[in-house]
């Protein structure tokens, strides 16, 4: 069953990796953590759920809806919590994103009701069986979609002008503006993109776990953040590596220990890395 836990870990790791990328994007550009990430994930999940229940059962449309909602709300958070607070001490922005986190959660709970909503299953049939380990089509799809997303991001960052601008602004926004890059616009774009990404992940998670509720984002956001720190928050490949490693470690830890220790393992990793290797596995040294 080692293999089965590894497979579960990789599937879950795909979700963590995408969330971790979002944290890395925001960190890279603003040296800031967006504490409302979990709620963007939750809103994405609701958007996907609404589409599936009321518009069309097409999964692609649901994922797109999650992406768009994440984009829009992410954009809004950037405008309020970061742009409007430029020049104010960083802590104000952080507190503001925490405020957003509560606000969005309570809004969703009021709007959709506090009870858990059921999301229909997709592709839940077994795709392969390897040594008693079952891999469902959904798990295959999740990993595939996550990888496609990462490849697209990689292409965006390394093959387009906008991506170049995002990287340049993240490295040195003053010099980037001397090159004619519109720092505000690039930052806002990357922030929206990070929101869109977690919104998208929210839909994937809703399908994987068949459930949507207002509090669903809290744990994955912390896990995603842990994955980002683990892999190196300044580096997107690091975030991806951190996501998959965390997924695998968590699931395998269940095999060897009581499952009650699962979160304990994740947070132990977070604390150890923050203490001894704050730059993570692949991260570069940064001045904070």
């Amino acid at each position: 069953m080692f293999l089965q836990q590894l497979i579960n870990g990789i599937a879950q790791g795909s979700l963590f990796a995408l969330i971790a990328i979002s944290f890395s994007l925001v960190w890279g550009l603003l040296r800031m953590v967006n504490f409302a990430m979990g709620e963007l994930y939750m809103l994405g999940a609701y958007a996907g759920w609404l589409v599936v229940m009321h518009v069309t059962p097409n999964l692609g449309v649901a994922l797109f809806a999650g992406f768009m909602v994440g984009w829009i709300v992410g954009w809004l958070i950037e405008k309020v919590a970061f742009k409007a607070m430029r020049g104010v001490p960083h802590i104000a922005s952080l507190v503001c994103t925490i405020g957003f986190s509560f606000f969005l959660k309570e809004t969703a709970s009021t709007l959709f009701g506090a009870e858990t909503k059921s999301m229909p299953s997709y592709y839940s049939q077994t795709a392969f069986t390897i040594a008693e380990a079952n891999i469902s089509w959904l798990q295959v799809l999740m990993v595939a979609v996550a990888i496609i997303m990462m490849v697209l991001l990689q292409l965006l960052f390394y093959r387009t002008k906008v991506g170049l601008a995002v990287r340049a602004v993240a490295l040195d926004y003053r010099t980037a503006s001397l090159m004619g890059m519109k720092v505000d616009r690039v930052t806002s774009l990357a922030f929206s993109l990070s929101g869109a990404l977690v919104g998208f992940v929210g839909v994937l998670a809703a399908i994987y776990y068949n459930a949507v509720n207002a509090g669903m984002g809290f744990v994955p956001a912390i896990k995603g953040f842990t994955a980002a720190v683990f892999g190196g928050i300044t580096s997107i490949p690091g975030a991806i590596l951190g996501g998959y490693l965390l997924g695998a470690i968590e699931n395998l830890s269940v095999k060897f220990m009581s499952s009650g220790y699962r979160d304990f393992v994740s947070f132990l990793i977070l604390i150890i890395f923050l203490l001894f290797r704050p730059n993570g596995i692949l991260g570069k040294k940064t001045k904070l």
Binding site: L164, R167, A168, L171, D172, R174, T175, A176, L178
Partner: peptide, 10 residues
């Protein structure tokens, strides 16, 4: 700019 300000990771 002064100090060259190369994008070190590009």
């Amino acid at each position: 700019p002064e100090g060259r300000k190369i994008f070190s990771e590009l």
